[in-house]
Structure formats: structure tokens, C-alpha cells
Design a protein around this nucleic acid. Structure first.
Length: 104
DNA sequence: TCCATGACATCCA
DNA sequence: CTGGATGCCATGG
């Protein structure tokens, strides 16, 4: 379990700095060892059991809040991002490139 | 081993 | 823009 692909994903997501966001593909690319955006998304689906996972900072490659439906409401994810200084409009991040962070 | 699912990515009509 | 199809990989039944 600790050595599962999930742990790697969680570890990276937890390292995302305040006010920054990343994409599933970026994480998958960073892990590299057998990993695809799908596997990352699947791991995030389980992240709902882990409070330490700022999943709202993880979006798809367009910066769209694809996983917002997994949060409590429909705008909670957006609220969290805007609360960190990340502007969101029409379910997508504004100036995404400026907030884009990659594990390195 | 095969089948189904998943918060993706990318291509195409 | 929307929807379908394909590829990718991990996990569970």
C-alpha cells in the first residue's frame, strides 16, 4: 500500500505550493514509472479519504476543474482556488500558465 | 486471465 | 462545442 502508485501521486500533490496548480498528465509524467493521466485520476478518486490531499489544485491539462463534482458542492473547488489567489472562470483557471506548477 | 471502471489525453467528425 | 473512439495504466471482482 505505501508503495502503491497512489502514494506517489499523493506525495506530489501534497507538495503543491499554496496558490499553485498542476495537471494529471504532469504528475503522471513526473512519476514516469508506469503512470498515465488515467491512473493519476483514479488515485485522486481515492484521495477523498485523505484530507491531506489538496485535490482542488489538480486539474486537467486545460486547467479545467474536471473533478469539481467530487467535492461537496459544485463551486467548492472553485472557491478554494480563488481563496488561494487562483482565479477561476467558467470552471477553468484564469492565467493557468501563471499558476501552473510542476514537481521538480 | 479477462472484464469493468476511472477526477485523463488526444484525435477526429 | 459535443460526442465517439483509442491509448494509457492500476485496481478489484
Amino acid at each position: 500500500m505505501s508503495d502503491s502508485f497512489f502514494n506517489k501521486v499523493y506525495d506530489v500533490v501534497k507538495k503543491i505550493p499554496y496558490g499553485k496548480v498542476t495537471t494529471y498528465g504532469a504528475i503522471a509524467n513526473y512519476l514516469g514509472s508506469g503512470g498515465s493521466a488515467r491512473t493519476v485520476g483514479w488515485a485522486m478518486n481515492n484521495s477523498h479519504c485523505f484530507e491531506d490531499i489538496p485535490a482542488h489544485r489538480v486539474v486537467n491539462r486545460n486547467g479545467i476543474l474536471t473533478g469539481k463534482h467530487h467535492f461537496s458542492g459544485t463551486n467548492l473547488m472553485q472557491q478554494l482556488l480563488e481563496s488561494e489567489g487562483v482565479k477561476v472562470e467558467e470552471d477553468k483557471i484564469v492565467n493557468f500558465d501563471d499558476h501552473y506548477w510542476v514537481p521538480n
